[in-house]
Simulated assay, not measured.
Amino acid sequence: MRVLLTGATGFVGRAVLDRLVISDDMEPVAAIRSHALPDIARNVKTVGISGLLADTDWSEALDQVEAVIHSAARVHVMNDTETDPLEAFRKVNVEGTLKLARQASSMGVRRFVFISSIKVNGEGTSINEPYTADALPAPVDPYGFSKMEAEQGLREIAAQSGMEVVIIRPTLVYGPGVKANFLNMMRWLHKGIPLPFGAIHNRRSLVALDNLVDLIVTCIHHPAAANQTFLVSDGEDLSTTQLLQRIGIALGKPARLLPVPSKLLEKSAQLLGKRALSQRLCGSLQVDITKTRELLDWNPPVDVDKALLLTANYFLSKGRKR
């Protein structure tokens, strides 16, 4: 099966490409920005594109393709400098995505797998009241709204054309090469810095990169995945305190955590203008993957501790200065 993958140089896209390359029944085609072509050092067909925009021509990339995995996007950033962030997200995540999907359906693509975001569901849950795949969307920020609108447009295209659409909403993804806040946490722990996160009793769902990739590849061909929306996680929810403790074990550096009350952390963060960061550290965000498990007969193949060990080993060997 020939599979078009967008975003092949990204954190998730690279891992998906690695999986497709070793699959006997998959022939991957990597569609990436033209300037990034030398970055694909494999025996993989690559097609340069001008960008994920409403006027992009996908005809060469879609030639004889049976399935599309669309992981490219304008990603969420903490401090967006755009004058109109929602419009900037819409140009790429909505207009660009729907142009690709329309052209894919017109060229006979059977299935379109869209990597969306848990931000379509919202920004947080109460403890033990997880998001479900079929709950009403409640996005809060421009990125979440753009992903929701892309999902809505894809469902319309599926209804009109018969092309099957599969939507996957990951939680926070971690694994070898992870960046941003997760990388910062590993750096702090590795240096032995005392952290004020020893008394946080939230619950957060995370997903290891290997688990997300396994679900994505499953959704390429599983008949029950057609026109469904799935949430994905490791199946084990952790507090921030537990996560740091277990990262510390993986790093071989016991976490030095001070038991500062989470309410005090939240108030301090608000005073410093870091409310979004405090929400991620102190707030809960849980997902229920029962539908994913039962409909696809799927379970996360990698447990949390193994995934953290893989992440930590990469950090120790290559990622400390990145």
Rank of each mutant, 00 (worst) to 15 (best):
R2Y: 04
V3W: 01
L4V: 00
L5F: 02
G7L: 04
T9E: 01
G10K: 06
R19N: 14
L20D: 07
I22R: 03
P28R: 06
A31C: 07
A31G: 07
I32N: 00
A36P: 04
D39T: 14
V44S: 11
K45T: 05
K45S: 05
L52K: 10
L53T: 13
T56W: 12
E60S: 11
V65F: 03
I69E: 00
S71K: 06
S71P: 01
A72M: 08
V75I: 15
V75K: 03
V77Q: 09
N79E: 15
D80S: 10
T81D: 13
P85I: 02
E87H: 09
F89H: 15
N93E: 02
E95A: 15
G96W: 01
T97E: 04
T97P: 01
L98C: 10
L100I: 06
L100D: 04
L100Y: 06
A101H: 07
R102E: 11
R102N: 12
R102T: 00
Q103P: 02
S106T: 13
M107T: 08
G108P: 01
G108K: 14
R111F: 04
I118Y: 09
N121G: 12
G122L: 12
E123Y: 11
G124D: 11
T125S: 12
P130H: 15
Y131F: 15
T132R: 15
A135D: 15
L136N: 15
L136C: 14
P137C: 14
V140R: 15
Y143A: 07
Y143P: 01
K147F: 11
A150V: 08
Q152Y: 14
I157L: 13
Q160V: 10
Q160K: 14
V166G: 00
L172C: 08
G175R: 01
N181Y: 09
N181I: 06
L183C: 05
L183S: 08
N184G: 13
M186Q: 09
M186D: 07
M186E: 06
M186T: 02
W188R: 10
W188M: 13
H190L: 13
H190W: 14
I200C: 04
A208T: 02
L209G: 03
D210H: 01
N211M: 05
I220Q: 02
P223N: 08
P223G: 06
T229R: 05
F230S: 03
V232P: 01
D234P: 06
G235Y: 03
E236C: 03
T240D: 13
T240E: 13
T241P: 05
R246S: 09
G248P: 02
I249G: 03
L251S: 10
G252M: 08
P254I: 07
L257E: 05
L258A: 12
S262Q: 10
K263G: 15
E266V: 08
K267H: 13
S268Y: 08
L271K: 13
K274Y: 00
G283K: 02
S284E: 04
Q286P: 02
K291Y: 11
L296F: 04
L296A: 05
W298V: 04
N299S: 12
V304H: 03
V304C: 05
K306H: 09
L310T: 08
T311M: 07
T311H: 06
A312W: 06
A312N: 05
F315P: 00
F315I: 07
L316F: 10
K318A: 12
